[in-house]
Simulated scan of single mutants.
Amino acid sequence: MQGIYLIADTSTGRLYVGKADGAERFLGRWSEYARNGHGGNVALRELAAADARHRQHFQFSILQVFSPSAPSAQVDAAEAHFKRALLTRQFGMNLN
């Protein structure tokens, strides 16, 4: 399945909204976070660089699930919606 997820940093309360799409979907994205602590995201990379164990403070939630055949535009629109609704660009860890 593909979809939109939320990472809550339980030590700061800051949120990050991401999408799991493409061939790897949720398992692939979350495996990447487990492996390196940042999944390639700029704000999370900064946290990992400051403290490699900071990922222990992350709590993952699924916000919305889409079928594997859902159009990428639909998944992108949902991700943008949750970023706006949760104010993660202004007060969270989404830089774009």
Results as ranks from 00 to 15, higher is better:
1 M>P: 02
1 M>R: 04
1 M>V: 04
3 G>M: 04
4 I>G: 00
4 I>W: 00
5 Y>K: 02
5 Y>F: 04
5 Y>Q: 01
5 Y>D: 01
6 L>A: 04
6 L>P: 00
6 L>E: 06
7 I>K: 00
7 I>W: 00
9 D>W: 05
9 D>S: 09
11 S>R: 08
11 S>M: 09
15 L>N: 01
16 Y>E: 03
16 Y>I: 03
17 V>A: 12
18 G>R: 00
18 G>D: 02
18 G>W: 00
20 A>T: 06
21 D>I: 06
22 G>I: 05
22 G>P: 04
22 G>H: 05
23 A>K: 10
23 A>E: 07
24 E>T: 14
25 R>V: 06
26 F>E: 07
27 L>Y: 09
27 L>H: 08
27 L>A: 11
28 G>T: 10
28 G>W: 04
28 G>V: 10
28 G>H: 06
31 S>E: 08
32 E>S: 13
32 E>G: 10
33 Y>G: 03
33 Y>W: 06
34 A>Y: 13
34 A>G: 15
34 A>F: 11
34 A>S: 14
36 N>T: 02
36 N>D: 07
36 N>A: 03
37 G>R: 00
38 H>C: 03
38 H>L: 03
38 H>Q: 06
39 G>F: 00
40 G>A: 09
40 G>D: 08
40 G>V: 05
40 G>R: 05
41 N>H: 10
41 N>W: 05
42 V>L: 15
42 V>C: 13
42 V>E: 13
43 A>K: 04
44 L>K: 04
44 L>D: 03
44 L>C: 08
45 R>K: 11
45 R>T: 14
46 E>W: 07
46 E>F: 09
47 L>G: 02
47 L>D: 03
47 L>E: 05
48 A>K: 06
49 A>F: 05
49 A>I: 10
49 A>H: 12
51 D>E: 02
52 A>Y: 09
55 R>I: 12
56 Q>G: 11
56 Q>P: 09
58 F>E: 04
59 Q>R: 11
59 Q>F: 11
60 F>I: 12
60 F>M: 10
61 S>W: 15
62 I>F: 05
63 L>Y: 02
63 L>D: 04
64 Q>T: 06
64 Q>L: 06
67 S>M: 12
67 S>R: 10
67 S>Y: 11
68 P>E: 11
70 A>M: 07
70 A>C: 08
71 P>K: 13
71 P>V: 12
72 S>F: 14
72 S>M: 12
72 S>T: 14
73 A>F: 14
73 A>M: 14
74 Q>K: 15
74 Q>P: 13
74 Q>F: 11
75 V>C: 02
75 V>K: 00
75 V>G: 01
76 D>V: 12
76 D>E: 14
76 D>F: 14
77 A>R: 07
78 A>W: 01
78 A>I: 05
79 E>C: 02
79 E>P: 03
79 E>H: 01
79 E>I: 00
79 E>N: 01
80 A>K: 10
80 A>C: 13
80 A>N: 11
80 A>D: 15
81 H>G: 04
81 H>T: 07
81 H>V: 07
82 F>R: 01
83 K>A: 09
83 K>H: 07
84 R>G: 10
85 A>D: 15
85 A>W: 09
87 L>N: 15
87 L>T: 12
89 R>V: 13
89 R>W: 15
90 Q>A: 14
91 F>L: 13
92 G>H: 05
92 G>V: 05
93 M>S: 04
94 N>E: 07
94 N>K: 09
96 N>W: 15
